[in-house]
Computed example of a mutant assay.
Amino acid sequence: MINVMLVDDHAVLRDGLKNIIETEEDIHVVGEAVNGQQFMELLPECEPDVVLMDINIPDKNGIELTGMLKKNHPDIKVLVLTMHSHDEYFMAAIREGADGYLLKDLPSDQVVEAIRTVAKGESIIDPSMTKKLLGFYNQKEESSQQSELTEREKEVLICLVSGMSNKEIGEKLYISDKTVKIHVSKIYKKLNVKSRSQAIIHAVQNQLVPLP
C-alpha cells in the first residue's frame, strides 16, 4: 500500500484528488494539510510514502517544504503538483530534491500513475517541462563529465531525458531491468546527483545529450 499525503490549500482540489486516489486499491490518503505548519505537525503521525505537494501554500511554499522534508526524511518521495510551468519554480523544486514535477492540467489517471512511479524510487517530469528545458540549450561540445560516461551509460542517460521508465529503457536497449538500475546508479554517481529528475536537469544544462 502506498500512503499519500496531500498538501494543498484548495479544498475542492484536495477532495477531488482524494476521491480519485481512494478508488485505487494500492494507494491510500493518510493525511491532508492546507499550509506548511499543518504539514509539519501532521507529518510524524501520517508517515506518508509520497507527498503530493502544491507550491503556492501559506506559511512556507511547497519548494521550501520539499527542501526541509528531503533533508530530514530523504526516503519520503515528493511529487510536486502545481499550476506553475515557470522554469524557475521547476528548477528550484528539483534542486530541493523533488522526485517529480507535474502540472495540474494533467489527466487524473496520469497523476495516479506518477504516484506509483515515484513510490518505486523513480522520478517523473511533466513532458511539457522537459521539452521547454531542451529548447533552452543549443548543442555544444561534450563536457568532461560526459567523457567519463561509457557509451551504454550515455544511451541510458538519453533515455532518461526522453522520459522513459526503467522498463522502457530495458526494452529499447535490450537489457534487463536490473542492468538498467546498475547503469542509472553509476550515472548518478558520476554526475553527482541523487535522483532521476536531477540527472535530467544536469544532463540538459551541461549538454550531455543530443538536443533537437
Rank of each mutant, 00 (worst) to 15 (best):
M53Y: 03
H84S: 13
V29L: 15
D75T: 15
N61M: 07
Y89F: 13
Q37T: 15
T150E: 03
K186G: 06
E153Y: 04
D8W: 05
V80W: 08
P127L: 13
N35P: 12
G62L: 11
D49R: 05
E25H: 11
M5S: 04
K194Q: 05
Q139D: 06
T150N: 04
V180Y: 10
I175T: 13
A114P: 09
D75I: 01
K60F: 15
S143A: 06
I187E: 07
G62E: 03
I76T: 07
E32L: 14
V80G: 11
G62C: 06
N138L: 00
D75C: 04
E168R: 02
S123G: 14
I182A: 09
K186Y: 10
E41F: 08
K186I: 06
M68D: 15
L79A: 06
L133W: 04
G163C: 02
G121D: 10
S197N: 07
P127Y: 07
S143Y: 01
V180I: 11
Y89Q: 15
K71F: 09
P212I: 00
I76R: 01
E32V: 12
E113D: 03
V180T: 09
E25P: 13
N3Q: 15
P58K: 01
A98W: 05
L191Y: 01
E32K: 11
G163Q: 00
N138W: 02
N206T: 02
D26P: 11
M68L: 15
G97F: 05
H84K: 13
V7I: 14
K71I: 05
P212N: 00
L208H: 02
N56C: 09
E32S: 11
I175A: 07
L208K: 00
P44C: 14
K172I: 03
E22R: 06
I125S: 04
Q110I: 04
E24Y: 12
E22S: 15
G31N: 06
V34H: 11
D87A: 09
P107H: 08
Y89L: 12
M40A: 14
V204T: 01
S162R: 00
S176A: 15
K104T: 01
A11Q: 08
P127F: 07
P212H: 00
D8G: 10
T23S: 13
G135K: 03
V111G: 05
F90T: 07
E64N: 00
N61C: 08
V12S: 09
L133Y: 11
M83S: 08
E96L: 00
K140T: 04
V193I: 01
S128T: 01
I21Y: 08
P210C: 00
E24N: 08
V111N: 03
D26N: 11
F90Q: 09
Q37W: 14
T130I: 12
G62Y: 04
L43M: 05
T23D: 14
P212W: 01
T179R: 07
K172M: 04
E22I: 06
P74A: 08
C159F: 10
V12G: 09
C159L: 09
D75K: 11
A119Y: 10
E22K: 14
M129P: 01
E22Y: 10
H10G: 11
I76L: 10
I57P: 02
